[in-house]
């Protein structure tokens, strides 16, 4: 799965939170998430940006079509307030066990190496929820380094 997002969409969402100049440079970032082989339905995932204290800053991607299940992605749900404007245009299908999802987004340069981290909450129907299944700092060194999650995520990496 490859989705390219207009710089506008995401940069705009984040500027409000970060009071960043609107003419900031943008960079293409690819997020690769691979799930473990677990016995169960497709997983719901929320990729979001948090500050160093884990406080929600903005939504990157939500995998899973039914908004009624979003409350199970509890860290993200709390931060975003499940406000539809937060994830509008940033959703796709749920991710089946063992599958890999690749998402490419345009991110503001200013977000990198500035103490932000990428978090992913995961949930599967009739199975447990994992808040911050993965939480990795968004840094230049971290690019291309796969990390294992503690829940359904087998490995996650971003490529700047």
């Amino acid at each position: 799965m490859k989705k390219t997002l207009l710089a506008m969409g995401l940069a705009f969402g984040l500027t409000t939170a970060l009071t960043m100049p609107a003419f900031a440079q943008a960079r293409e970032v690819t997020f690769t998430t691979e799930l473990r082989n677990y016995a169960g339905d497709g997983a719901y995932l929320a990729l979001y940006l948090a500050d160093a204290n884990g406080r929600y800053q903005g939504t990157l991607w939500v995998a899973g079509g039914k908004s009624k299940y979003y409350k199970h992605l509890s860290g993200w749900a709390r931060g975003s307030g499940l406000n539809a404007a937060e994830y509008d245009g940033l959703t796709g299908a749920s991710l089946a066990s063992g599958r890999t999802m690749k998402i490419t987004l345009n991110l503001d340069d200013a977000l990198i190496d500035s103490g932000y981290e990428i978090r992913i909450d995961t949930a599967v129907e009739d199975m447990r929820d994992h808040r911050a299944d993965i939480a990795v700092p968004l840094t230049s060194e971290g690019s291309g380094q796969p990390q294992a999650g503690r829940g359904y995520i087998q490995s996650f990496q971003y490529d700047l």
Binding site: S67, K68, Y70, K71, A77, R78, G81, L82
Partner: peptide, 9 residues
């Protein structure tokens, strides 16, 4: 379908 989002945080 009943709305089941629950209260806001």
């Amino acid at each position: 379908e009943p709305v089941e989002t629950g209260p806001a945080f």
